[in-house]
Amino acid sequence: MLQALADGILTGSIIALGAIGLTLTMGILRFANFAHAEMITWGAYMALGALALMGPFMAPLGALSFGLPLIIAMVIAAVLTSLLALMIDHLVFRPLHGRPNDMTIVFSSFGVSLLVRMVVLLIFGGSAQYYSNTLQIAVPVAPGLRILPDQLFVLGFTIVTVISLHFFLQRTRLGLAMRALAENPTLARVNGIDTRVVIRWTWVIGASLAAVAGVLYGLTVQLRPEIGFHLLLPLFAAVIIGGVGNVFGAVVGGLIVGLAESLSVFIIPPSYKLAVPFIILLIVLYVRPTGIFGSAHHAGAK
């Protein structure tokens, strides 16, 4: 039980990172980006590529399975994932903006997600890969609870990222502009905000968070081209639980989904774990479609 709780929090924190990026883009760019989860896959594999180029020059840091190169690889992955997001926005989403059916963009993101996944598969192959072959010894933390040092790193890193993002959104002018744009794009423009610039930064932040989530996932689970495909539903569930556009809500939503997935094994066979986010999603949509923290403004209701 304790172990399942710990695993749930760990998975939940990775889902949360991805969900933050998705909720920001859904709130600010105003469409459900099906390709967001593939940014997670892309980021994870870009880090793998960067790591391969750097080589395992440095010894692991402390008890962790990786060294400084992985941190550098994570930064490179964030940059490359941001570039991919900006490229997709430029080539696909922006030209489709203003089509009579708003759902055309959502649908195009569905097509893009397939393309990104297949390109990753083509370059890196379909079998599972790992950043490091170093074997880690799980540290017993409490009776019946063992945690890998890497998992502690993931948790700590997520907490730091979420807090920094919170301060960025609350304290900087760009953060303020993003929040304003999420509420009312026209009024934001009237206030002198160049929304194109803010949108570009939104992509960069969303994609970077996705890349980080991908690397952390690869670190604690494994790398497969289907990472994103399997995370898409948990991400959407987390975003909707927390209320679209709500960063704090996405974190809580991510944790709820992660915990529900790992605790579900006590009720249903583990092979149905992937359906848990869908069940949660349905319940939220039936009971409280604005999400737990949803305000009337970002309400799911029309």
Binding site: F34, V106, L233, I240, V244, L274, Y286, G300, K302
Partner: peptide
């Protein structure tokens, strides 16, 4: 449909994606 069609249009897309995954699992 009952869960999503009164909501934002994209919720239907998300829910249909979800039910397809669940059906595959079943």
């Amino acid at each position: 449909g009952l869960a999503t069609l009164r909501l934002r249009e994209e919720y239907l897309a998300i829910a249909t994606f979800g039910i397809a995954i669940s059906i595959q699992l079943i």
